[in-house]
């Protein structure tokens, strides 16, 4: 079953400079139980895409259009406020980048998990609290009975991110959207949180969308990858295939530029230039100003995301399609 269907999503923001398109025609979908990674740099539109999926952006200044924007079988573009509130947290739950600012500082941890449960399920406060404690235990918080009475400032970042995960799981969502869930955390804590997310996904069979700028996180956690750049999808495919043989020159350059892959002090392969400014994007392919194999046509035509091999697609006119392409 398809949990998420996004087709030709465009998100623009009314800003001082005029209308700025942060997402320019993104399409992908997510099957139930699948884990999908969306990788991109700042300004690639990866976070905006997922906020738009849950309709979390303030509209205006944001404007969302799409041929399809479906979450758990419901048309998110048509849903009214009440329908949206009932979908969020129940069909799809989110975990955000900075756990330190993700919780309301004046309410206890327990209160904030309980209110989530009560919003979606028929449960008494007492039942909800018992469930909150069970969830905190599931995310490996040892003194869960005490932690429900804590205020957010009394916990470390790593613990708070566990709380956020417990809260996201509280209504057994079909999809967990994790937006840079480990970026603000220390390396060792990051590894623990990623392992926890993977374990829970395996256990519950929920779908996972992992948004990150870190290819290492992608390599560790997901089945399928969407590579975004300049508000567009550059490449999609199974994670092993993408890391073994990236199709798009951007993906290739990105993988090559990761430091520390070989021992020894050395010069790194760098990508010249900088990411496009969404307010003033380049014509044609967004990557052409930095692309080593760009030709004249790349400056003019915007390449479409085309199937290049089984299960793999890339938006690049310089990448030939294999004969086996389905």
């Amino acid at each position: 079953m398809r949990l998420v269907e996004i087709e030709d999503l465009v998100v623009s923001f009314r800003q001082f400079e005029g209308l700025v398109q942060a997402v320019r025609g993104v399409s992908f979908d997510l099957q139930s139980g699948e884990s999908l990674g969306i990788v991109g740099e700042s300004g690639s539109g990866k976070s905006v895409t997922c906020s738009a999926l849950l309709r979390l952006l303030r509209e205006p200044p944001a404007t969302i259009t799409a041929k399809k924007l479906v979450l758990g079988g419901q048309d998110m573009l048509r849903a009214d406020k009440r329908a949206l509130a009932s979908i969020r947290g129940r069909v799809a739950a989110m975990v955000f980048q900075d756990p330190m600012t993700s919780l309301d500082p004046v309410f206890t941890i327990g209160h904030q998990i309980v209110e989530t449960i009560v919003a979606h399920k028929r449960a008494s406060k007492k039942e909800a609290l018992a469930r909150a404690i069970a969830l905190l235990k599931r995310v490996e918080i040892k003194n869960a009975e005490a932690v429900v009475r804590y205020y957010p400032h009394q916990l470390s970042g790593g613990m708070l991110q566990r709380v956020m995960i417990a809260m996201a799981l509280s209504c057994e969502p079909a999809v967990l959207v994790a937006d840079e869930p480990t970026t603000a955390l220390d390396v060792t804590i990051q590894a623990q949180i990623l392992q926890l997310i993977k374990d829970i996904q395996a256990e519950t069979g929920m779908g996972l969308i992992m948004i990150t700028h870190d290819l290492g996180v992608i390599a560790e956690t997901v089945d399928r990858v969407v590579v975004m750049y300049g508000g567009r999808v550059m490449e999609t495919g199974p994670v092993e295939a993408i890391f073994a043989a990236p199709l798009h020159p951007y993906t290739r350059a990105l993988l090559a530029s990761i430091p520390g892959q070989q021992p020894g002090k050395q010069r790194l392969t760098e990508i010249p230039g900088s990411s496009p400014n969404p307010a003033n994007p380049p014509s044609g392919c967004p990557f052409h100003p930095r692309c080593p194999i760009a030709e004249d046509a790349c400056r003019v035509t915007t390449p479409l995301l085309e199937t290049k091999a089984t299960g793999r697609a890339a938006a690049c006119i310089r990448v030939p399609a294999e004969r086996v392409a389905a």
Partner: peptide, 12 residues
């Protein structure tokens, strides 16, 4: 940010 989280939890 926590207000966005509250919306994402599905509170009215």
């Amino acid at each position: 940010p926590f207000v966005t989280v509250l919306r994402a939890k599905g509170l009215s």
